[in-house]
Computed example of a mutant assay.
Amino acid sequence: MLTPEGERVHHPRYDLETDPELLRTLYSAMVTARRVDAEGVTLQRQGELCLWPSLLGQEAAQVGSAYALREDDHAFPSYRDHAVALVRDVDPLRLFRMFRGVTHGGWDPAERNFHLYTLVIGAQTLHATGYAMGVGYDGADTAVIVYFGDGATSQGDVNEAFNFAAVYNAPVVFFCQNNQWAISERVDRQSRVPLYRRAAGFGFTGVRVDGNDVLACLAVTRAALDRARRGEGPMLVEAFTYRMGAHTTADDPTRYRDAAEVEEWARRDPIARLRTHLDKNGWADPDFLDEVEERSERLAVRIRDSVRSMPDPPLSEFFGATYAGGHPLVDEERDGFLDYQASFLDAEVS
C-alpha cells in the first residue's frame, strides 16, 4: 500500500482509508520506537542493561499491527516488540527494568491488555491461543494477537498453537515477523515454503504482507482481527521484514550475513518510506518533524536518567512473585533466606 518510493497503492482486497493525521501518528510512533530502541542498545553497551533485543527495521510491522488493535483486544508479545508496548501505552521503563534484571516482568497485563514478554521461543502462541479459546467460550466481542518470529515457527509450541486455534476456531491472529534470520539461521533453513502457507495445513487462512509498509500491516491486521471477532477463526499474518541490527546485543551479525544484504534492505526503510510519502503530499512540515524528534529525544533522556538511577530491589522480593496469594512453603523459604542473609551482617558486626 506504500511503495519503497513512498507512492500510495490501493489493494483490491485490503483497502485502508487514511488521512494526514493518521499518517503523522504512525510516523511519530515509528520514530519514537526507533529512538527508544537505540537507547536500549546504547545502555546495554554501557553496562546498564543485561541484554537488549533490537527492533531496528521492524517498526512498521509492529506499529501498523498495534494500531489495528482495539482497546479491549489482548496482545501477547515475544521479547522484541517494544513498539507494540509503546502503542499500547506501556511505560517503556517497565521494559527497561526487565532487561536490567530488577523485575521478572514489570507490568500488570490487565492494565493495557498487553501481556508479559516471553523469552521462551514460541511459548506465547500457546498462551494466546488458550486465552483466545476462553474469549470464544465467553462470547466476548474481542480478539487476540500474538507476536513471534520466523525462527519460532520451527518450535513445536507454535505448531500446537496453530492446531488448537484451528480446531477450536479461536479468535486469534498469529502475527509472524519474518525478519529473515533466526539468530544466525536463514529463514530458508526454517521452511521450504513461505511461512504464511503453513496456515493452510492447519485449516485456516494465511497471508504475507510487506512488513516494511506500515499501512499494509495496519490494513491486513485490522481485517484479520475483524475476521476473528466475527467468529471466523484464526489467521496467520507473515510480515516480511528484516532485522537491521543484531539478534540481541549478545550477537554479532557480521559473522553470518553479508553487508550488501543489509544495505539492500536499508533502502526499504519503513520510516523513510512513510516520511517520503508525507513530504510528497506536503503533510509534514519542518515544525512537525522537529517536534517528533525532540519528543523522542526527551523520552530517551528520561529513560537514560531513570535507568542509571534505578535501584536494585531487595532480593527477598523474588519470593513475592511466585504465587498470587502467597504460599506457606514459599514463606518458609523466604524466611530461611532472610536468616541466611542476616548471618553475613552478623559476621560483619562481630
Rank of each mutant, 00 (worst) to 15 (best):
T3P: 06
H11W: 03
D15C: 11
P20G: 04
P20E: 10
L23I: 09
S28F: 13
T32L: 15
A33E: 07
L51S: 06
W52Y: 12
L56Y: 00
V63S: 03
V63L: 09
G64H: 04
D73N: 08
A75S: 13
F76Q: 06
P77G: 09
Y79P: 10
A83G: 01
R88Q: 05
D89E: 15
P92V: 03
L95N: 14
L95A: 11
M98L: 15
G105S: 13
W107A: 15
A110E: 13
N113G: 09
F114P: 07
T118K: 09
T118D: 01
G122A: 09
T125H: 10
G130T: 08
V144R: 10
G151N: 04
G151E: 07
G156Q: 03
V158R: 03
E160V: 12
A161I: 06
N163I: 05
F164Q: 07
A166H: 03
V167P: 11
V172S: 00
F174T: 01
N179H: 01
R189V: 11
P194V: 11
A200R: 03
F204G: 05
D210T: 05
D210R: 07
G211M: 09
D213C: 12
L215E: 02
A219K: 12
A224R: 04
R227L: 09
G231P: 00
E232L: 12
M235G: 08
L236E: 02
L236N: 02
L236M: 07
V237L: 12
A239H: 01
Y242N: 08
R243H: 05
D251C: 04
D251E: 07
A266C: 06
D269T: 14
I271Y: 05
D290L: 15
E297G: 02
I303E: 05
D305F: 09
D312L: 09
D312V: 01
E317T: 15
G320I: 04
Y323K: 05
H327A: 12
